[in-house]
Design a protein around this nucleic acid. Structure first.
Length: 566
RNA sequence: GUCACAGUGGCUCAGCUGGAUAGAGCAACGGUCUUCUAAACCGUGGGUCGUGAGUUCGAAUCUCACCUGUGACACCA
């Protein structure tokens, strides 16, 4: 029962009397941009077409049929029927509802406990985590939380990039220039340097690439030395990743590397063969997708017999489906891989897997630096841990200036600093590219994570100071105050926001909402003194409590902490 | 060249299942802390919604063409 249901019900009652039966009132009903025009507004233009009458006359006719007692005010302006709803009861009901449901408020049971998988983060071993991995990680994590809120059971899978020619290059580089003690001291940086150096040299001397390929071949053939080096590199890399994940409070249900699927690709190839899907083209084995509108076939086996990315992803998709019986399978991967996922779905479909359309590719935009694409190979990389450290330092500095007596400064600085970085990554539409600017990422003012956190901390501060808001009293009528009712209106939208964010796999919808809610609360906070001992104190506190609850819940879904003080 | 995605104030973006006067944040300028955390609040200036056609009572939103940017275009992932 959200606020607009009164309006919808009354319109649904009246429209058939008017001769209109089949009309989606809820769809047509809109929220005026200017609240002076009403809380909800019904445009009559589409009816004008059906009835061949002017919108104004239609609005007038419908107006006559409406039971005006159900509303505070109804008027007609420019062909719109504007509804001002009776505030008191709906506001009371909403506050009671939020207080009863607590963090369950906003739950939408779409999933009925069914499992979904989310492929996310997926860093490459021997390479540092960059801002690009952060995107996949935090978007995936937020989606997992949102899906949970919607009744699904997400399995977060970290598909580690631990296989491929690149490791052949790394092994070759290590054999030429590597130093064990260096790697023990500073594993990822050292390995990265080796990798970058190798690629630089290979530019001058392409023969090096053959050497890299040879080492990868050794690895695939199970060469003892190659395997043990690979295991070592993998181990030290994973340890470092774990530290970052633990900083961000993100965990995974399962890690599977590309290597994990090495022995699972044969059966995929066999099945492709038995279905007569494989053909040979220029020495490689491919699946022809021309009938699906693809320009190129999907390359399954290279002409030298080695497997490819899609071969592994096919094996992984099939394996995961079998293991988890998931009803959908989400991949949070950069938009530059769109074609790959189109091919993946197309091949799965050709193989007869009906669930191929439950494979959902959730792309996100590219991060550039000074307008240039990041490239690990060329050493152009934004190190995630440097960004996070920077954010932490700035947050700590702010706390020392603004709230020097805060007890757990370091912890809060981490929550606020990381909150800024994570929020920045989530607040815009996923698909949007952005050019990395440190000063924007670690902003604490305006439309930022810390702004939302700060708003919540203010609310919490009030609740701390009031003595008895938890002792149940009657909710009184404070809703003539627009600032209070504005809060009610936006709180009321929360479940729909969750619903939309889930439908579009778009955390930014929730992030934008959190900003909006914070803004409306800050206005209320400025305008109305809450801690005044009168008979409406309890109600004001309930409003504050409800707001804080939804702010916290939004932040938590986005994977951001909501400290009580900052 | 083909395909995909994007183009909204100086910058970053909302709005895009068509609807009333195109909204925020940053930056600039000016106000508000003896009163619940000023990481806040209020105000001012700033926009041919890439361009041109079309559909419509009505287009930032839909269609088409073009321009610009980015990405992908089989043996990388």
């Amino acid at each position: 029962m959200s606020l607009e249901s009164v309006v919808i019900q009354e319109l649904k009652r009246v429209l058939p009397d008017y001769g209109i039966t089949d009309l989606d009132v809820a769809q047509l009903l809109e929220k005026p941009k200017n609240s002076d025009w009403g809380d909800f507004s019904f445009p009559t233009f589409s009816l004008a077409k059906i009835k061949h009458k002017s919108p104004y006359n239609i609005a007038e006719d419908i107006y006559q049929l409406l039971n005006k007692n159900l509303f505070a005010k109804v008027n007609i302006v420019n062909g719109y029927i504007n509804f001002f709803i009776l505030r008191t009861n709906v506001s009371k009901n909403l506050l009671l509802k939020i207080n009863n449901e607590n963090h369950s408020f906003g739950k939408v049971d779409l999933g009925h406990g069914k499992t979904i998988t989310i492929d996310m983060s997926s860093p490459n071993i021997a390479k540092p985590m960059s801002m690009g991995h952060l995107r996949s990680t935090v978007i995936g994590n937020a989606l997992a939380n949102i899906e949970t809120k919607c009744g699904y059971q997400p399995i977060k899978i970290n598909f580690i990039g631990d296989w491929g020619t690149q490791f052949g290059k790394l092994l070759a580089a290590y054999k030429m220039w590597g130093d064990k003690s260096e790697i023990d001291k500073n594993p990822i940086d050292t390995l990265l340097k080796l990798y970058v150096r190798f690629n630089q040299k290979a530019k001058e001397d392409p023969k090096l690439n053959d050497l890299g390929r040879a080492w990868f071949k050794k690895l695939e053939d199970g060469d003892k030395e190659a395997i043990s080096l690979w295991k070592w590199f993998r181990e030290v890399s994973l340890q470092r990743f774990e530290e970052i994940y633990s900083d961000l409070k993100i965990d995974f249900d399962w890690y599977d590397g590309e290597a994990f699927y090495n022995d699972k690709m044969d059966s995929v190839v066999k099945k492709l063969k038995s279905e007569n899907l494989l053909t040979v083209s220029q020495g490689a084995q491919v699946v022809d997708l021309s009938d699906e509108g693809f320009k190129n076939p999907a390359l399954i086996i290279r002409s030298d017999g080695a497997s490819l990315y899609i071969t592994r992803d096919l094996a992984a998709a099939i394996y995961r489906k079998k293991k988890y019986h998931s009803v959908k399978s989400i991949y949070v991967v950069g938009s530059e891989q769109k074609q790959h996922f189109d091919e993946l779905k197309a091949v799965l479909k050709k193989m007869g897997y009906k669930w191929s359309d439950e494979v959902i590719y959730v792309p996100f935009g590219l991060i550039t630096y000074n307008g240039k694409k990041l490239s690990t190979r060329e050493g152009r990389i934004i190190l995630l841990n440097e960004v996070l450290d920077n954010a932490y330092d700035l947050a700590l500095k702010q706390i020392n200036e603004k709230n020097p007596n805060l007890i757990n400064k370091e912890e809060v600085a981490r929550e606020v600093g990381y909150g800024a970085v994570v929020f920045h990554d989530l607040k815009n539409e996923r698909i949007e590219n952005f050019d990395f600017k440190l000063e924007e990422v670690v902003q604490f003012e305006g439309d930022t994570g810390p702004y939302v956190q700060y708003t919540n901390a203010r609310a919490q501060s009030i609740l701390r100071k009031s003595k008895d808001y938890q002792i149940k009293k009657d909710i009184t009528d404070i809703f003539n105050e627009d600032a209070a009712f504005d809060l009610i209106k936006i709180l009321d939208q929360y479940p729909q926001i969750i619903f939309q964010a889930e439908k579009k796999y778009e955390p930014s919808i929730l992030a934008k909402y959190a900003i909006q809610l914070a803004k409306v609360f800050n206005r209320y906070y400025k305008k109305v003194k809450i801690l005044v001992e009168d008979d409406q104190l309890y109600t004001r506190l309930q409003l504050v409590r409800a707001t804080s609850l939804v702010l916290q819940d939004s932040l938590n879904l986005l994977g951001i902490k909501a400290p009580n003080e900052m």
